[in-house]
């Protein structure tokens, strides 16, 4: 495989990973809102969210492997694992490493959700809100094509989609019909435990 082909694959896989990750974040936000129709039950949103998250990891792996084995940059495997250890664009590549490791932690804890419990899983899952913007900044800072019109439009579309989903989530509030009952039950349990 030629060096140029590796480089093009790195850039293509990076762009696809950003799109997939943004879709995963949007679907995750929508799943919290419990949106459903006759032809789109709630579990479809959750299932698609899970499948796309796993797919994102695959394309991120492609992005990282092609970047590491590219002989021009000599990044080395350490840079892919340890943040800010790369001699090449240290800060921006370090952000990419952090975003990948956060995403890995989120996916792994989701796969073993039954073992670690709901509270721990939820706490780790909140890291998504850190992983996604770090990934976007990594793309802007490191990306060779960051200011190319096509990638700029792609990044802008991803940012708008996620911000719109977050805005909708904040405005819609909780769609859980048992939210009040749950909170009152939880507060009653807390009161009993503090006695």
């Amino acid at each position: 495989m030629s060096n140029q082909l590796l480089w093009y694959t790195t850039r293509g896989a990076g762009a696809v990973s950003l799109v997939l990750l943004s879709a995963v974040v949007v679907l995750g936000i929508l799943s919290v809102l419990r949106i459903q129709t006759a032809g789109w039950p709630r579990f479809l949103t959750v299932g698609l969210h899970r499948n796309l998250a796993l797919m994102t990891l695959v394309f991120l792996a492609l992005h990282i492997v092609t970047a590491v084995v590219d002989p021009f940059t000599h990044l080395g495997w350490l840079a892919a694992v340890v943040p800010f250890s790369s001699y090449y664009r240290t800060f921006w590549l370090g952000l990419g490493t952090i975003a990948f490791e956060l995403l890995l932690a989120i996916v792994v804890t989701s796969l073993v959700r039954g073992l670690i419990g709901q509270v721990a899983w939820r706490l780790v899952h909140w890291l998504t809100y850190a992983s996604w913007p770090v990934a976007v900044v990594h793309g802007v800072g490191t990306g060779t094509d960051a200011w190319s019109a096509w990638l700029f439009a792609l990044q802008a579309a991803c940012v708008v989609a996620v911000l719109a989903a977050i805005g909708y989530r904040l405005m819609a509030g909780s769609r859980d019909p048992l939210a009040n009952a749950r909170s009152s039950f939880q507060s009653a349990v807390d009161r009993r435990e503090t006695r």
């Binding site: 093009y8 293509g12 762009a15 696809v16 060779t144 096509w150």
Partner: peptide, 9 residues
């Protein structure tokens, strides 16, 4: 998409 974006880049 990887192929397309790679070709565009």
């Amino acid at each position: 998409g990887v192929g397309l974006f790679g070709a565009i880049s």
